[in-house]
Design a protein around this nucleic acid. Structure first.
Lengths: 245, 245
DNA sequence: ACCTGAACACCGTTCAAGT
DNA sequence: ACCTGAACACCGTTCAAGT
């Protein structure tokens, strides 16, 4: 009984020194994650994809978490490069709208990026943190330049940022939960059966998606936030809260 | 060399029929998840907690996922019961604010509930879906009763719902990533070192939390959304978009 | 310095029983 | 009908080597 052979019975030839690098591993990890999904990325699976022994990976990354952190760094770099640059003196409404619309599109189109940057529990490296904060700093400067106080600018940025993350993550989770599990057919249910006693939802269900993660939903949410920000700016100009007692 | 004994060498006595039930298992699973976290809930660990053989669980739940789905059902039930009932004729701003503030508090105080209902990729059971939609229906009725069109009511609900989920999930993920990993000390970094070239963030960092998930942030975000909704309602009353070409 | 298989502890799950 | 251990395939990780 042969025990630890490859499935096809072939045995790899030993790789020569320097034939593997940390970058190769990260690259391969992205390939595997793109093909399946991030949480199906396993060290043995990755090793097979790279055609190396599993333990070779551990020379470069002492924990799987280290590898994921390295991937997150690369993801942040990718993300920052894909984001459109700020147009100076652009109206803040347009700047915010474009920034977060782009952000949503990027994460929607690249699930691995979203998993690494938004869903996985990780702390960014100094460099990744810096790159992300530089983007934020740019938007804050733009907001402040057009009249927001620094505190309000920060709150504005956080609010729309959290909203965007919320819609991306919710959308991702919905997408995952409806992915046919290969076994097919035994999902818990396809459709609600009884809308009785819920006439409003019943009447809306045919024309609107329920989940609230559609383009229309996103546009609506961003629109309402921007509207609320405008009011804030107006109130800020009208009557700055009297300082001191 | 003894191989498959309990750690302490003791061997359980066989349990009698009917000494275990699906509810016992679900209850035990919540206990274990509360103690650690949901993704550290393992079948062997749960079996040990219940003092049964691992395989006994499989008589009641044929997959771990089935158990998690059952837990989600219970979670939804808990959640719905913890939510404050709607006060009829309450101003919609207050109703929305109270509803989603309560929701945020519940998920913040019970991480397992948040993990099951918000973060885990699952499809709700018919009953759970119904309970959640009943809550939504109530709020929609209130909004429509105070002037919103059904479509706008739905958009309003979705927007504030996504924002709340976003802040809960983001907060949960931040909390997880800062949990000392028991190994202690080798987190990636404690603090940003160089805020050079980011004067705005540098000046804000001392007085405001960066993450955007504080109570203040939540109040701000909800406030801006409500403000945006008010404008929408005003515009809706003022000039309903002319129908047809 | 780099690459490797054997080995270990752990997990989810199946199976063929025991009562 | 319910409970069980043995066993399997898989995973993350360590170790003691090989080159």
């Amino acid at each position: 009984m042969p025990t630890s052979r490859s499935t096809d019975g072939s045995r790899r030839t030993r790789r020569h020194r320097g034939s593997l690098s940390a970058d190769d591993i990260i690259k391969g990890a992205f390939d595997v994650a793109q093909g399946m999904s991030l949480d199906k990325l396993s060290m043995p699976g990755l090793a097979q994809h790279l055609d190396v022994g599993v333990t070779s990976i551990y020379w470069y990354f002492r924990k799987k978490e280290e590898l994921l952190n390295a991937m997150t760094d690369v993801a942040v770099e990718k993300f920052v490069r894909m984001m459109p640059p700020l147009t100076p003196d652009e109206p803040w409404q347009r700047a915010l709208s474009e920034h977060f619309t782009a952000q949503r599109r990027i994460f929607r189109d690249d699930a691995t990026l979203a998993d690494l940057m938004l869903i996985r529990t990780s702390t960014y490296s100094r460099n990744a943190t810096r790159r992300v904060f530089e983007l934020e700093e740019g938007l804050l400067a733009l907001l402040i330049g057009q009249g927001f106080t620094p505190e309000n600018a920060l709150h504005v940025y956080n609010a729309i940022s959290v909203y965007t993350r919320g819609i991306v993550i919710h959308d991702r989770i919905l997408r995952l939960s409806y992915t046919p599990t290969l076994g097919a057919g035994h999902g818990r249910q396809r459709r609600m059966t009884s809308w009785e006693s819920m006439p409003i939802l019943d009447s809306l269900i045919d024309h609107y998606p329920l989940a609230g993660t559609s383009d229309e939903d996103f546009t609506f949410g961003v629109g309402r936030l921007l509207c609320g920000f405008e009011q804030l700016l107006a109130e800020q100009d009208r009557g700055p809260a009297p300082a001191g007692g």
